[in-house]
Simulated scan of single mutants.
Amino acid sequence: MKQRLKARYLGLDLKSPLVPSASPLTATLSGARALEDAGAAAIVMHSLFEEECQKDQQMLHQFLYDREQGHAESEGYLPEPDGFKTAEERYLETLKQMKEHLEVPVIASLNGITRRGWSEHARQIAEAGADALELNVYYVAADAEESSQDVERRYLDILHAVRSSVPDLPLAVKISSQFTSPVHFVSQLKQVGASAVVLFNRFLQPDIQLDTRRLHSMLELSHSGELRERLRWIAIVRAQVAIDIAVTGGVHSAEDVLKAQMCGADITQMASALMQRGPGIIREMESMLLDWLDENEYDNLLQLKGSVSYRNAADPAGFERANYLQTLDSWRP
């Protein structure tokens, strides 16, 4: 029965397209176990942030420097650094634990800031046994001197550095929707060595506190309405670039999963839905997917995949400008 929902992503055979994305829920072995028990087909670990690694290294360096410069009589009062673990060490330890105790594939997630950091951390992650690596490139282009080509080159340089460091590890690149020509850019990513793309990264927007005139960080969970932008580009990319596609952002129901499959997504990643409703939602969605296949006389989910992509849609122009005109014409007072 479960074979009816099988999927393939990054060279991995999965029992379904239902995959928890990077979030606090995937930051611990216990959290990952709960998700696996609930039916998750794979686990995307929380991201390793290079800034945290740099901060820990600076703290450790300062600690050792203070020991070296300190008075000999005080050395016995200073704690030994052997018990201190950096963010990377903690991450790799958790990754190894997940690989040892979980049956589903474990996809690591990396969020770097320097070319050297991207490649070095990726190498450590590969050596720790990750089944694949998701490059979470979270970059806001805020420099007036930086062109759109410069931004794209930044992503491509990161991917090239990581691919050179880990030539055999399947790589997914998580990108935003704010590119001038997303399809062309995805094609470039594939040429440089991407095995998959994740559409799309959600840029968290700051608010402003009126009384203090300070920026206020806010975490707003996604909703199904955000899926529509992703469906458009999944359908268009699927028709033109032979690359694996994961959708993230706006997946909250079995209906959302079906729509993503129709447009051509290989897997659907979820975070907000799991944080709101708990791991049990995976089993619920799995059951609803099977019911839908029965009601609509499909043998399996793969038969549905890409049936409404740009190439196969009855009205492909609906993914482009025609959608704008039709929507305006449909309004009535």
Rank of each mutant, 00 (worst) to 15 (best):
V308R: 11
S165I: 06
S109V: 03
A260D: 03
P279S: 00
R332L: 10
G278M: 04
I281D: 08
L301W: 07
P24T: 00
D315Y: 13
G225K: 10
A265Y: 06
R153D: 14
M275N: 09
G280N: 05
P170K: 08
Q3L: 08
D143A: 03
V162W: 03
T180Y: 10
V19K: 05
L14P: 06
A265R: 06
S307C: 12
E284M: 01
L325Y: 15
L199D: 03
P24M: 01
S74R: 14
M275A: 01
L274T: 03
I208Q: 09
F179P: 06
S147C: 10
L258M: 10
L210D: 10
G117I: 01
G117A: 04
E80Q: 12
K99P: 08
E297P: 07
A41V: 02
S177I: 07
P24D: 06
H61M: 13
K15M: 10
P279A: 06
S222G: 08
A142C: 00
A254V: 09
P279R: 02
A317G: 11
S165A: 15
P105V: 04
M270V: 01
T28H: 11
R115T: 14
D37P: 03
E286K: 04
L274N: 03
M218W: 11
K305W: 01
H71E: 13
S217N: 12
D256W: 07
H101E: 12
M218S: 15
E88S: 15
A27M: 01
V237A: 04
Q303P: 05
A7R: 03
L29E: 05
L78C: 07
L215E: 11
S195E: 04
R230G: 06
Q191R: 15
G264T: 06
E220P: 07
A126W: 07
M270E: 10
Q54Y: 13
L25H: 07
L12W: 02
R277D: 14
G112L: 00
I236V: 15
L258D: 08
D207Q: 12
H160W: 11
L92F: 04
D82I: 10
L12T: 05
I281K: 08
R228K: 11
L156G: 02
R154Y: 15
A271D: 12
K2S: 15
P333Y: 14
